[in-house]
Amino acid sequence: MNLDDVMGAWRSHDLSPLFGVDQTLLHQVLRQEQARAEKQLRRMRWFMNVVTVVLLITAALFLAIMIDPKDDDVLVVWDYVVGIVGVVAAIVLAGALFALRRSRRVRDQGFDDSVRDHLRRHISQLDDESVGERRLALIVVAATLVCGSAISIAGHRINDVPWGEFDWSPLPSVLILLCTYLVLFRWIPRARSRNLARQRQLEALLKELDGQ
């Protein structure tokens, strides 16, 4: 038996008769996988949309405080400061969220279908999951801060409480602390450890493919 003999046998062999494929079951599995992927995508879109809507409502709330005082209200300079800062912060955060989604779409267009680019895309996706989740986490923390402050300030101003007599509710602070804890000590480390081993493995494969 020599190499040409073995290669000849390879080219003439067909595995099809050795394995049967259950077409009905296969279609069922493909539909299930498709439904699962769509559900995940829907969940992510829903989350992003909720955060964006909350941020825009917050911006509107700040604007309302600033531009629609009651008849007997006298706006002080702090009303304008808070209003402008709040609107800008909420719009910047919503913009950051939009940019994050857009950068993911653009990234996926930069690879072709070769095995090498498939590995690079996969590595980039894992890296993006870690970095992206970190960015998303920061947006969520910042959004909680903005929204918490907005609710508190709006509540006080609607009840005509002067700035000097604000009684800060502990609720927004507790929310912010809880959110920060979850993000920094649960969410980010979990995503990082989940992806790191896989990322290293794929990088090793890429080096192998490049012949290093």
Partner: peptide, 14 residues
Amino acid sequence: GLLVASGAEADPRV
């Protein structure tokens, strides 16, 4: 059951 092996053996060289 998605992929069912017929039990037949491939060419030993393969």
